[in-house]
Write a protein that binds this DNA or RNA. Structure first.
Length: 277
DNA sequence: ACCCAGGATTCTC
DNA sequence: GAGAATCATGGG
C-alpha cells in the first residue's frame, strides 16, 4: 500500500476526477475511488489536506508521483496567463493532468466520440468488468482496464452489448494494433508526429489523438478541441473558427503547456458556461 | 419526435 | 481540401 498526504491546493480530487480526463473515478461517501494501473486508488479530503491511498500490486512511489503529475510546478506554467485562463485556474486549484495508461486512454477516448460523459463512464466500467483482470482489496473485487490483447479478443457483438455502439469495430481494430505494439514508439515522438501517427488508428481523429497524446503520453502542448472548447473560445475569447483554427489559436496563446490550459478551460466551461450558449 | 453528447468516417463537390 | 450526411445509444 502506498500513501500520500498532499495539500488540497496541489491535488484536489474534486477537480482532478471531474475535469473530464478520466472516466473511472466515482465519489462514494465523500471518498473518491477508482482503478488506475491495476490498483485501487482512494482519495479523501480532510480540511486543507488530501489523503491518497493506493492498494493492490506494489508499485514504486515514484510511479505514482508520475501518474499523479505531482512533480510539475503548476503555479509556474502560465506566468502571463490572460484573465480568462487566470479565472479558470483560480476556480480549480489543485487540478492536475494525470499520466494515464496508453491503451485505456486510447480506447476510452475512441468511445468518447459523439457521446456523453456519463454514458462513456458506464461503457468503460462494463468493459472492465467484462474483460479486465479482477483483483480484490479488503474483500471487495475491482477490475483493471483490459489490456490490448484482451480487448482485441472480444467480439463486435459483445462490445455493442456493453454500449460501444458504432464504435465497436474501431475499438477492436485499434486494440489489435495496440496489441501488436503499435503504441510503443509514441512516447519518443514529438507532439506533431504523435498527433499525426495516432490518427492512423481507427476511430481516432484530431480531437481523440490530442487527448491520447496529452493524457497518456505527456504531450502537454497537445490541445484537444471539442464542442466545449469551441464554445469557450468563442464566448470568452471572441475567436470563432474551425476546430483546426481553434487549435492553432490555443497553441499560439498557451504554448508548451496548452493541454493543461485546455483542462482548466474545459472544466471551467462545463461548470460555468451554460450549455447551448 | 427532436436534439445533443469531449467526433470520426465516408461521400460529394 | 472543404462541407454535408451518417454513424449507435440514452437522456433531456
Amino acid at each position: 500500500m502506498t500513501e500520500f498526504v498532499l495539500r488540497k491546493a496541489e491535488f484536489n480530487p474534486d477537480h482532478v476526477f471531474t475535469c473530464g480526463q478520466t472516466f473511472r473515478f466515482q465519489k462514494e461517501n465523500g471518498i473518491w475511488c477508482g482503478v488506475a494501473r491495476g490498483n485501487l486508488l482512494e482519495a479523501e479530503a480532510d480540511g486543507s489536506i488530501v489523503r491518497l491511498r493506493i492498494s493492490g500490486q506494489e508499485l514504486a512511489a515514484e510511479t505514482w508521483r508520475q501518474y499523479l503529475d505531482l512533480d510539475r510546478p503548476y503555479a509556474e506554467l502560465f506566468p502571463e496567463a490572460d484573465p480568462v485562463l487566470r479565472r479558470a485556474m483560480q476556480s480549480a486549484p489543485g487540478l492536475r493532468v494525470l499520466n494515464q495508461e496508453p491503451v485505456e486512454t486510447l480506447i476510452s477516448f475512441i468511445l468518447s466520440a459523439n457521446n456523453n460523459i456519463p454514458r462513456i463512464s458506464g461503457t468503460v466500467k462494463a468493459l472492465c468488468e467484462e474483460a479486465g483482470t479482477p483483483f480484490s482489496v479488503g474483500g471487495e473485487v475491482f477490475y483493471a482496464f483490459p489490456d490490448a490483447a484482451a480487448l482485441a479478443g472480444m467480439t463486435e457483438t459483445s462490445l455493442r452489448t456493453l454500449g460501444a455502439g458504432y464504435r465497436a469495430p474501431y475499438i477492436l481494430a485499434s486494440a489489435e494494433r495496440a496489441a501488436g505494439g503499435d503504441l510503443d514508439g509514441v512516447a519518443d515522438m514529438d507532439t506533431e508526429d504523435a498527433l499525426k501517427y495516432l490518427q492512423t488508428f481507427p476511430g481516432v481523429g484530431p480531437k481523440v489523438a490530442a487527448c491520447v497524446a496529452l493524457f497518456a503520453f505527456g504531450k502537454r502542448e497537445a490541445f484537444p478541441v471539442d464542442t466545449w472548447m469551441r464554445r469557450i473560445v468563442r464566448n470568452l475569447y471572441g475567436f470563432e473558427g474551425s476546430p483546426q483554427a481553434v487549435q492553432a489559436f490555443a497553441e499560439e496563446r498557451f504554448g508548451s503547456s496548452a493541454g493543461i490550459a485546455q483542462q482548466y478551460l474545459f472544466h471551467y466551461a462545463r461548470r460555468y458556461l451554460p450549455a447551448g450558449s
